[in-house]
C-alpha cells in the first residue's frame, strides 16, 4: 500500500514549503499526494437576504476560483515530479475538514504549513495548524 499524504494548501509561501516537504517525502516513500484546500465556512454564520439569494451562485464562483487560482497551479508545479497527484476542495472548518479529507481518502498523514497568508478565499493555516494537530485522525507534520 502506497503512502498517501494530504497537504493543506492555500497558495501561500508556507503552504508551498509544506507542499515541497511532502513531495520529497512522497518521492522517498513512494507515495502519492492529495492537495487539499478548505474554504472557511460555518453553517451558523449570518447572511442578509440578498446574500441568501446569491449564495448558490457565489459558491460556484468561489469553488471555480479556488480550483483555478490555488489547486491548478499546485498540480501544474508537480507535473514533472512523477507522483500521483489528486486534489480535494471543500467548505467547512479548516482543521476538521482537513481531518475528514484525510479520513475519506485513507491518507497516512497530513502536512501543513505553520501559517498562511491572509487573503484569497480563506486563511488556511495559523491556529488551524494547532487545532489540526489536536484533532486529526492521522499524524500531522507542521512545516515552518
Amino acid at each position: 500500500m502506497s503512502h498517501k499524504i494530504v497537504v493543506g494548501y492555500d497558495g501561500s509561501d508556507s503552504a508551498n514549503a509544506a507542499l515541497a516537504f511532502a513531495t520529497d517525502l512522497a518521492k522517498t516513500l513512494g507515495g502519492s499526494i492529495v492537495v487539499a484546500h478548505v474554504l472557511e465556512w460555518s453553517p451558523y454564520s449570518f447572511l442578509t437576504p440578498t446574500e441568501l439569494e446569491e449564495r448558490h451562485k457565489r459558491r460556484g464562483e468561489e469553488l471555480a476560483r479556488a480550483e483555478a487560482a490555488i489547486l491548478a497551479p499546485a498540480v501544474e508545479s508537480l507535473k514533472d515530479s512523477g507522483l500521483q497527484i489528486d486534489t480535494a476542495l471543500k467548505y467547512g472548518n479548516i482543521a476538521t475538514t482537513l481531518g475528514e479529507i484525510a479520513g475519506e481518502c485513507g491518507a497516512n498523514q497530513i502536512v501543513i504549513g505553520r501559517n498562511g497568508e491572509p487573503g484569497l478565499s480563506s486563511r488556511v493555516f495559523g491556529s488551524a495548524a494547532i487545532s489540526l494537530a489536536q484533532a486529526a485522525p492521522v499524524p500531522v507534520t507542521i512545516v515552518p
Binding site: Y44, F46, R55, L63, Y91
Partner: peptide, 16 residues
C-alpha cells in the same frame, strides 16, 4: 448533506 457545505443552511435561512 456535508457535500452541501457552503450552501445556505437551514440555520442561516431561519436566522435571516
Amino acid at each position: 448533506d456535508p457535500n452541501d457545505a457552503g450552501e445556505v443552511s437551514h440555520f442561516q435561512a431561519l436566522a435571516t
